[in-house]
Amino acid sequence: MVQLIDLTRTLDPADRDLLPEQLRPLAAVVAPAVTYAHPSGSGRDEFAAAMRCSVEDLPEGEGWGSELVTEFSSHLGTHVDAPLHYGSTCEGKPSRTITDISLDELWCEAIVLDLRGRCAANTAISVDALEAALTANGAPIPAGGAVLLRTGQEQFTLTDPEFFQYPGMSREGTLFLAERGAKVLGTDAAGWDLSFAVMARKFEETGDNSVLWDGHRAGREREVFIVQQMTNLAALPPSGFRVAFFPIRLARASAAPARVVAFV
Score class of each variant (00 low, 15 high):
7 L>W: 11
24 R>I: 10
25 P>G: 01
29 V>C: 01
33 A>Y: 03
35 T>L: 13
40 S>N: 14
42 S>T: 14
48 A>T: 01
50 A>I: 15
53 C>I: 11
57 D>W: 12
61 G>H: 01
70 T>K: 15
77 G>Q: 06
80 V>G: 06
83 P>M: 13
96 R>A: 07
99 T>R: 06
101 I>E: 02
102 S>W: 06
104 D>A: 14
106 L>T: 10
119 C>T: 03
119 C>D: 00
121 A>C: 06
121 A>L: 05
123 T>R: 05
126 S>V: 02
129 A>W: 00
135 T>N: 12
136 A>Q: 12
140 P>S: 07
140 P>D: 07
141 I>L: 04
147 V>K: 05
149 L>A: 05
160 D>Q: 14
163 F>K: 09
174 T>Y: 04
178 A>R: 04
179 E>C: 13
179 E>V: 11
190 A>T: 15
192 W>Y: 10
197 A>Q: 14
199 M>N: 13
203 F>D: 05
203 F>A: 03
206 T>W: 00
210 S>V: 03
212 L>A: 09
220 R>I: 10
222 R>L: 04
231 T>Y: 07
237 P>C: 08
239 S>G: 06
240 G>S: 01
243 V>S: 10
246 F>P: 00
247 P>I: 04
253 A>N: 03
256 A>Y: 02
258 A>I: 09
259 R>F: 13
259 R>N: 15
261 V>C: 15
261 V>D: 09
